Simulated assay, not measured.
Amino acid sequence: MGVWQLLLVGLVMSLGLVGVMVPGVPGRWLVWAAMLWWSLHEQSGLAWVLLVASTAVLLIDQVVMWLLPPRRLRGVGITRRMAVFAGVGAVVGFFLVPVVGAVPGFIGGIYGSERQRLGGHGQAMASTRTVMRAAGASVLVELFGCLLVVGAWLGAIIWG
């Protein structure tokens, strides 16, 4: 696979990660489609293993999403800026502390956004808890599954 195709696969995966944070965008499916595209062009043992593993991870992710309570976005005060902070925090945390850093990065991003908006620690903590109860857990689960797939793909590209 050429450099341009790898960049396009990476772009589609990035759009999928952003799509997880935007309601109505099929972020999980964009990440999986990019993995499928890469696997079909690569046609190696590693590519097929990653495709099967990413399919399993994203299916498990979907089941966990069904088990979580539904998202209650209205009246909670979730803003675009908060979603951006949470997404950036999760991605940065994922790469700073591999895999497990996504969770504290996501929550830290929400807290940082709320701390800037509200000014105080107590109010920001209360708002962060409210957001995580309303919609944060389901978004975090979906984002974490997609980050696992993207991280595995990056590992295969760099070291495979």
Rank of each mutant, 00 (worst) to 15 (best):
F94K: 01
P98Q: 03
R74M: 15
G122R: 13
G122Y: 03
A102P: 01
H121V: 13
V131L: 12
A102H: 04
R133G: 14
A124D: 07
A134L: 15
V84D: 04
T128A: 00
V99C: 06
R129E: 08
R129T: 08
G101D: 02
G89P: 02
R74C: 13
G136K: 03
A126R: 13
R81E: 15
Q123K: 12
P98M: 04
E142K: 12
R80V: 14
V76T: 08
M132Q: 00
V92D: 11
V97P: 02
E114Y: 01
S138D: 13
G105L: 02
I110H: 01
G75A: 11
G120A: 12
M125T: 11
A135S: 13
S138W: 03
V97Y: 08
V100F: 15
T79R: 09
I78C: 12
V92A: 12
R115N: 09
R80K: 13
S127A: 14
V84G: 00
R74F: 06
R117M: 07
R129Y: 10
M125E: 04
V91L: 00
F94N: 06
A90M: 06
G109T: 05
G108P: 03
S127I: 01
V91I: 09
L118M: 10
I110F: 00
V97L: 12
Q123V: 08
V76A: 10
T79M: 10
A86C: 07
G112I: 10
M132G: 03
V100K: 09
L118C: 04
V91H: 02
V84W: 04
S138M: 14
V91D: 05
I107Y: 05
R81V: 11
A124F: 04
A102M: 08
G77E: 05
G122W: 05
R74Y: 10
G109C: 07
A124C: 10
S127V: 06
R115W: 10
L118I: 02
A135W: 09
S113V: 01
G75K: 03
E142Q: 14
A83P: 03
A90W: 00
G105D: 08
R80D: 12
Q116D: 14
V131E: 06
R74A: 13
M125L: 11
Q116P: 06
G108A: 09
S113R: 02
I107F: 03
L140W: 09
A102S: 15
V103L: 09
I107T: 02
F106P: 05
G120T: 08
L96N: 11
Y111N: 00
R80Q: 10
S138R: 13
R74H: 11
G89M: 11
V131T: 07
S138N: 14
L73A: 15
V139C: 07
R133L: 14
S113E: 05
M132K: 13
Q123S: 11
G122A: 08
S113P: 06
P98D: 04
I107M: 09
I107C: 13
G89S: 07
F95M: 10
V88F: 07
